[in-house]
Design a protein around this nucleic acid. Structure first.
Lengths: 228, 228
DNA sequence: CTGTAAGTCTTACAACGTAAGGGAGGCTCC
DNA sequence: GGAGCCTCCCTTACGTTGTAAGACTTACAG
């Protein structure tokens, strides 16, 4: 028996739909959950159907980056020039970018892994450069500035170890032995735990540390600009 | 027929031998070349034999990090305290660490991907902390300092886009259109290419940029130390 | 009605990490 | 000296991944 009303045609696949679904999956289950099969399933399709809209997984991730940084550009494009020159402008932009990235904790890892240069990232850098130029930076100093900021320009920074991550595992006996060899580290932890009792765990305020480092760099740059 | 001289017993597998072979493979063929099967083959063994010495691939990479940072600690432990206080000491240490990492271009990616806290990394941080403490840092400021340095403390930094990487691909027509939207970026490239003609490609001196950023941060920290 | 193109699906493969368990060699203890 | 055990390595096999090759379906143009 053939019914009059055929199967409802799903909303068709689109490159954009694919990219946004990929972001949704990574948001929900982390980067490891983002596989071509799961992505297809999420879209009510088969894995190989994705390849018509996206050349492969690498290209998919390239696209994801574009969408993500595009979102950042949209946000940062809306913040008007704050008063006070280049420094508040750059600061506000970077912190806004960070806010977007905080909603996608997996994003830094993807950003770092790209080899291709994203157009949206270029746009972002161009905006930063514009603020610095307007603030009196030479191209040369602005160039140094971008390198000095590194990934911090986009709102994230790589921590070599995350005390909070290790804090929940059992306090290893070998690690206790090790602590004896680390006088300064243990001293630091002890003092800060003393100042702020109740939280040896999570005792690093990521946001405050990020802002501290950002301002440190921006202040240094401004000094160089003024000296030039 | 049984021969008197049996099959020569290969040098036995060892956790250390496994880790060092892993490093050798990554050095030679990149991180992608480092698979359990290839690693075993390199050692004249079967893949599953590795699992007696190493719990799994993640634990293998943890071990690789320990060996690598151990190498750094060995190198940086040998440099005597340079005259001039904490800043030259930290600077020399970080640059020495960088030199080691430059011999293993895949290492940053591994470092970043670890969740476990490496004992060797802790040792390294403790050494840095010691220099700062000796230079008059409070624990609080030293703590901020480590965060501000981030991955730069170990000698690498994440660049959001590597102009050299994209420089060899054909100058895309779409990218040419894009350039029109990026006045500051194109202006910067034009000027720097003018100052130093002959190399639009590879026009960023990574080593110089790294040192610039490092000094920028160290100078800023020293100012805070002096003000305290 | 007949191409032709766009879009999706089926099938299949190689490579990966690793679980499960077998077996050889050497040690200790009766 | 034999029994049992521990150390170390191997064989086999499974599930998952990205994706190459190509067949099918639908829509539309001539």
């Amino acid at each position: 028996m053939t019914t009059e009303t055929g199967p409802v045609p799903r909303t068709p696949l689109t490159r954009d739909r694919v990219l946004r679904a990929a972001i949704a999956i990574a948001d929900g289950g982390g980067l490891g959950a983002l596989t071509m099969r799961r992505l297809a399933e999420h879209l009510g399709a088969e894995a190989m159907s994705l390849y018509y809209h996206v050349a492969g997984k690498e290209e998919l991730l390239d696209g994801v980056v574009d969408v993500l940084v595009g979102e950042i550009n949209e946000v940062t494009g809306r913040i008007g020039r704050p008063a006070g020159g280049w420094q508040p402008a750059v600061r506000a932009t970077v912190l806004a970018a960070r806010e977007v990235l905080l909603r996608h904790p997996w994003a830094p890892r993807v950003l770092e892994s790209r080899t291709r240069t994203s157009p949206e990232v270029l746009r972002y850098y161009d905006a930063l450069l514009g603020m610095m130029r307007a603030g009196g930076f030479s191209y040369d100093l602005a160039h140094h500035a971008l390198h000095a900021l590194g990934s911090r320009a986009l709102g994230f920074s790589q921590e070599l170890f995350d005390p909070a991550a290790g804090a929940d595992q059992p306090p290893d006996a070998a690690l206790a032995d090790l602590a004896a060899e680390l006088p300064h580290l243990t001293g630091m932890v002890r003092e800060i735990a003393h100042d702020d009792p109740g939280s040896t765990l999570g005792w690093c305020d990521d946001q405050a540390e990020f802002a501290f480092a950002l301002d440190l760099i921006l202040d240094g740059l401004d000094r160089l600009r003024a000296a030039a």
